[in-house]
Nucleic acid binder design. Structure first.
Length: 562
RNA sequence: UGGGGGAUCGUCCAAUGGUAGGACUACGGACUCUGACUCCGUCAAUCUAGGUUCGAAUCCUGGUCCCUCAGCCA
């Protein structure tokens, strides 16, 4: 029994399993479903996937892998009014990009329409479903409230033959949209409102993204979902907490239908992240209200947005692993996501120098037409990443923030009379500054020490500060997009959430970087030293002008001191 | 005020009757050709009141608070 075909990626002996894995483990031990584990990720193709979906994807695909099972991708496309092919394509892309593979197990609830219909007929024949002619409004009124039971529909006890006839004519298109529904005959007095004769089918003349105009009746989620799961031989149907109340209905349908198996529904708490919103409705509003540039705006918590921002699949998967899975409502600190991407990129990203907000430095004792070449490693801790050549000249740019005319006590960057190191090049000392009429510094004058070539002093003297720099004449301009959190408050999940939009969530700069970066591939990530991690934008970069998105800043303990 | 869930450091997750532990954050410090990374350290929690027990975050009873459900959405 305990043979280890299931060892690869197995978690069975590792750190404490979450409650879902604990259930699955014990199901396997008891031999339930023959020890098989088949999960599914069932998105509705009515929007883009976000990091919350990534949690579910990692859970479902992760479990399948760990238990040597499989995970299906199934589009839950039972509402043609909202669903589009554009969304199914983006969803597939996102899942593949995250590193998961559904192999040949790609399904659509719409593939099961005929079977679902036959099951409905079966329920009618057994007197467990009926056609109801009440209007939507009347249905609502009869449903009762949280504290009062509902009233039975006057159509509840229609003869089977009449129900059969009516339902077939519903399918045939004889009735108007909304004029009738098929309902399960369960219990109008149930304290669980989902059991008060829920609607199974509605009449809806809308073109479906896959079935076109073949159908004018569509099954509801509650009816289609358990059947779809069962038809696919799903063993564990993992969903979010709000479906907990639906589980008795899920089970009722499966118990009353001759389905091949009865999957177990397990609910977990959805992901919430601080400083952002996660509901599709709110994200859609941001897109449609042009508060962001689209679903893939780098400020969006969508998979596409995170990708454009420079997040890696590895980091997202790691993040999902770290946040855990439980049943209590929670809000994950955005700082954890940021920590995870820093950790990943620290290892992977090549270091280069880019001066975000340039100010000119003139090295007065450096020959006017001399150009030197310095070979600087791409990564201080990983020589296998190689190195690049950086050109040095008499006039360079440094960061505006790296100079203070009247330095504060702990400031150990450039200031009049102070010596600093230019990364990989020379020590320089500031002699004086030139200002314009408005009092702004336009030139910083320095001298360099030829005996510090390469960045180390022959006499062993130390400097406290090391600055990044770029040759004024041999650097290239790039567009840099500095992103910050989308919202100004930790929890913007109120109706007026747009009031909390951060007006400074995007700042666009023209910056100067090493000329070698002109060949940067889109989506490649770099660390701009002392600034942060940046990623060549996959959409707006052109041959003439590269655009870099700031993925995340470096931790900055200096900024905190200030 | 019906039903279904949930309450552990500031935040997330563990501990399943036997020393409340880890991660993130924050704050110190060491190191440093990135004020990064790394390393070390500090602060910090069992919703509440009873009960069972040698022993309770865990079991029992009462209370409190939070989430969720009244779509022909999923």
């Amino acid at each position: 029994m305990e043979q280890d075909a299931d060892n690869k990626g197995s978690i069975e002996n590792e750190k404490p399993a979450d409650f879902v894995r604990t259930i699955i483990k014990s199901d396997r031990q008891s031999g339930k479903c023959g020890g098989k584990v088949i999960t599914r990720f069932p998105p509705e193709p009515n929007g883009y996937l976000h990091i919350g979906h990534a949690k579910s994807i990692c859970l479902n695909f992760g479990i399948a892998k760990e238990f040597s099972g499989r995970c299906h991708l199934r589009f839950d496309d039972t509402n043609p009014e909202k669903e589009e092919t554009e969304y199914v394509e983006s969803i597939k892309d996102n899942i593949r990009w995250l590193g998961f593979d559904w192999a040949e197990h790609l399904y659509y609830a719409s593939d099961y329409y005929e079977q679902i219909y036959r099951y409905a007929i079966l329920l009618i024949k057994e007197g467990k479903a009926y056609v109801c002619d009440l209007s939507p409004d009347e249905v609502r009124q009869c449903r009762g409230t949280l504290t009062e039971p509902g009233k039975e529909s006057p159509y509840r006890n229609r003869p089977v033959a009449e129900n059969l006839d009516l339902f077939e004519r519903m399918r045939a298109g004889e009735f108007e949209d909304g004029s009738r529904v098929l309902r399960a005959k369960i219990d109008m007095a149930s304290p669980n409102i989902n059991l008060r004769d829920p609607v199974m089918y509605r009449i809806l003349r809308a073109e479906h993204h896959r079935t076109g105009n073949l159908w004018c009746i569509y099954p509801m989620y509650d009816f289609a979902h358990p059947i779809s799961d069962a038809l696919e031989d799903i063993t564990h149907s993992i969903c979010t907490l709000e479906f907990e109340d639906h589980r008795p209905l899920y089970d009722w349908f499966l118990d009353n239908l001759p389905v091949p198996c009865h999957p177990q529904q397990i609910e977990f708490a959805r992901l919430n992240l601080s400083y952002t919103v996660m509901s599709k409705r709110k994200l859609l509003e941001l897109v449609e209200g042009n508060h962001v540039s689209g679903w893939d705006d780098p400020r969006m918590p969508t998979i596409s947005g995170l990708r454009r921002r420079g997040y890696t699949p590895d980091a997202i998967r790691k993040f999902c692993e770290r946040i855990g899975v439980a049943k209590r409502d929670s809000v994950i600190d955005m700082a954890l996501l940021e920590h995870t991407i820093r950790e990943d990129l620290n290892e992977k990203a090549k270091r280069v120098m880019c001066v975000l907000r340039p100010v000119k430095v003139i090295i007065d004792n450096y020959p006017e037409d001399k150009i030197e070449e310095f070979e600087i490693p791409y990564h201080p801790e990983n020589t296998s990443m190689g190195s690049r050549k950086v050109l040095f000249s008499r006039e360079i740019y440094i960061e505006k923030d790296d100079f203070m005319e009247e330095p504060t006590k702990k400031f150990f960057r450039l200031a009049p009379g102070c010596e600093v190191r230019l990364r990989g090049a020379y020590f320089i000392t500031c002699t004086n500054v030139k200002k314009n009429g408005a009092g702004e510094i336009v030139e910083i004058h320095c001298t360099y020490d030829p005996a510090t070539r390469g960045g180390d002093a022959a006499d062993g003297r130390k400097v406290k500060g090391t600055l990044h720099w770029v040759s004024a004449s041999r650097s290239i301009p790039i567009e840099v997009r500095l992103y910050e959190r989308l919202f100004t408050v930790e929890n913007p999940n109120a109706d007026d959430f747009k009031e909390y939009l951060n007006p400074n969530s995007l700042e666009i700069l023209t910056s100067m970087t090493e000329s070698g970066l002109k060949d940067a591939q889109t989506e490649s990530c770099y660390q701009f030293e002392r600034q942060g991690y940046f990623c060549a934008d996959m959409r707006d970069s052109t041959a003439g002008k590269l655009v870099f998105n700031r993925t995340v800043t470096l931790r900055d303990s200096w900024a905190k001191k200030k």
